[in-house]
Nucleic acid binder design. Structure first.
Lengths: 220, 220
DNA sequence: GAAATAATTTAAGCATACTTAAAAATATTG
DNA sequence: CAATATTTTTAAGTATGCTTAAATTATTTC
C-alpha cells in the first residue's frame, strides 16, 4: 500500500467499528479532522482496492484484507508505544503522537524485532491490547468508565483514552496510572463531577475526565 | 517544514556538495531518481522558503538555515542506523533503507534520547560521521578508496558506501567490515579488478566494488 | 570562437488528497 | 406520513510533486 493517508483511514475505521462491525463516513471525517467529501472520495478508492465494503449511503465494513491491514497498523502503533515508553523512557503522554508517525515508517521486520526485545507485550502503555504477529488479540478484561462507578465504590485503572496528550499529562499529575486504585468519595450531581481519592489524596475530577478512565469490572 | 520530499532534497544536497559548497540540479535528480524538471520546480520552492540559494543556471548552495536543517536530517538518519544495528540487531545492509523512512518520522526529542542510550556515537555502522546535537561533526580520518591502493599495500576499512543494500550484503560475505584489514595481492590491469586477502582468504573484487570501500590513509 | 553537445528550465499535463458549495438521500420529528 | 433536519455524495476547484517534450542556456570540442 505505502500510503500514510490510506493507512490512517483503515486504522481509524478499525478502531471505531460499531458492534455490528460497521462505521459511518461522518465518524471517520471527525476522527481524521477532514471533510466528509474527502472521506467519500477515499472510500471509493479503498473499496476499489478491496480493503473495504462500501456502497453509497450504506455503512462501511472492512474486508478481511482490510481488517488484516488495519490490525497490523494498530499492532505497529502499540508496539512502538510500548517501546518508546519502556525502552526509550518517554512519558506515556508523549508516545501516542510519536507512534502515530513511526507506525507508517517501519517494516514488519523492525516491528517484530521490537516485539521480541519487549518480550511480546500484550498491552500498550494506555492499556490497549496489542495484536500478535498472527493477528490474535489478547483477552480484554471487563471494564467501564470511572464515571459509571457509584459513590463509595472503587476501581483499579486498566485503560485510559490515549488520544489526548493534555488529558494524559493532567491525570498523571493526579497520580493516575495503570493499576492504580481510585475511590469514589462523592458524586456531585450539579456538574456530575467526582470527588475521588488516589494514593490517599483527594481530587475533584470532571465528568468528561472520568469518562476517559476505565476501571476493571469485578462482577456485573 | 514537515515534508518528506523537501527533507530528502535538503539531505541530498547536503551530502553531495562539492568542495566549493555547491551542487548542480542534475546530480540531485540522479540521486533522487526523478526528472531534472521536478528538481527545478522544487529548487524554486526551497529557495523561496530560504533553505537554499538558487539562481537559474547557477549552482545551488545551502543557506545556513538549510544547512542546519539538512545536517539535522543526516543526524537523524545516522543515529537511527546505529540504533537499529546496535540495539535492535539489524544487519548493516538493512539499516539504511529503514532509517530513510524513520528519519522523517521522529521528533528531535526521540533522536536525542536514542543518542543518549547509544552513549553519543560518532560514526554510523558504515563509518559515516554523526553530527552532534549542536551541529558539530566529529573528526574524519584521512581515507581513500581501496581501488587507489597499490599492489602489496594494505588498508584498514573505515568507511563503506551505504547506499546499496546488495553491495553491503555482498561485501559482508567476503568478511569485509569496519576495522577489517585488506591486503592488495594483485591488481589485474585488464579490468582493474583486485585480488585481495581478507582474514587469510583470497577474493577477486571488481574495480567498482573497490571504489566504494574506503581505507584509512596513514600518510600522504 | 563557432558549432555541437549537454544540462537546465519552461510549458503543459497528471494523480493525489484535500477544500467548499450544492444536490441528493436518509433519518428524525411533530 | 409529510415536513424538516441531518448526513452523504457530487461537482468544481486547489496545491503538491511529479511526468514528458520543447526551448533555452551553458559547456565542450574542434
Amino acid at each position: 500500500m505505502q500510503n500514510i493517508s490510506k493507512e490512517d483511514y483503515l486504522s481509524t475505521i478499525f478502531r471505531n467499528l460499531n458492534p455490528e462491525g460497521k462505521i459511518k463516513p461522518g465518524l471517520i471525517a471527525g476522527k481524521l479532522s477532514i471533510s466528509s467529501a474527502a472521506v467519500t472520495d477515499m472510500l471509493r478508492k479503498l473499496s476499489a482496492e478491496g480493503y473495504i465494503i462500501y456502497e453509497r449511503y450504506k455503512g462501511i465494513a472492512l474486508t478481511s484484507e482490510g481488517e488484516n491491514y488495519a490490525r497490523n497498523m494498530v499492532r505497529r502503533h502499540r508496539i512502538w508505544e510500548v517501546f518508546l515508553n519502556k525502552v526509550v523512557g518517554m512519558p506515556w503522554d508523549k508516545v501516542h503522537e510519536e507512534a502515530n508517525r513511526l507506525e507508517h515508517s517501519s517494516s514488519d521486520d523492525l516491528i517484530n524485532r521490537l516485539e521480541v526485545m519487549l518480550d511480546f507485550p500484550e498491552y500498550d502503555p494506555h492499556g490497549d491490547p496489542i495484536p500478535s504477529r498472527d493477528g490474535k488479540m489478547p483477552k480484554i478484561k471487563r471494564q467501564k468508565p470511572l464515571s459509571e462507578l457509584e459513590e463509595g465504590e472503587s476501581g483499579r485503572v486498566i485503560r485510559v483514552n490515549d488520544s489526548d496528550e493534555n488529558f494524559l499529562g493532567y491525570i498523571s499529575k493526579l497520580g493516575i496510572m495503570l493499576k492504580e486504585n481510585i475511590v469514589i468519595k462523592k458524586k456531585i450531581m450539579f456538574d456530575e463531577s467526582l470527588e475521588v481519592s488516589i494514593k490517599g489524596k483527594s481530587w475533584n475530577i470532571s465528568s468528561k475526565l472520568a469518562q476517559n478512565i476505565f476501571v476493571e469490572v469485578k462482577r456485573d
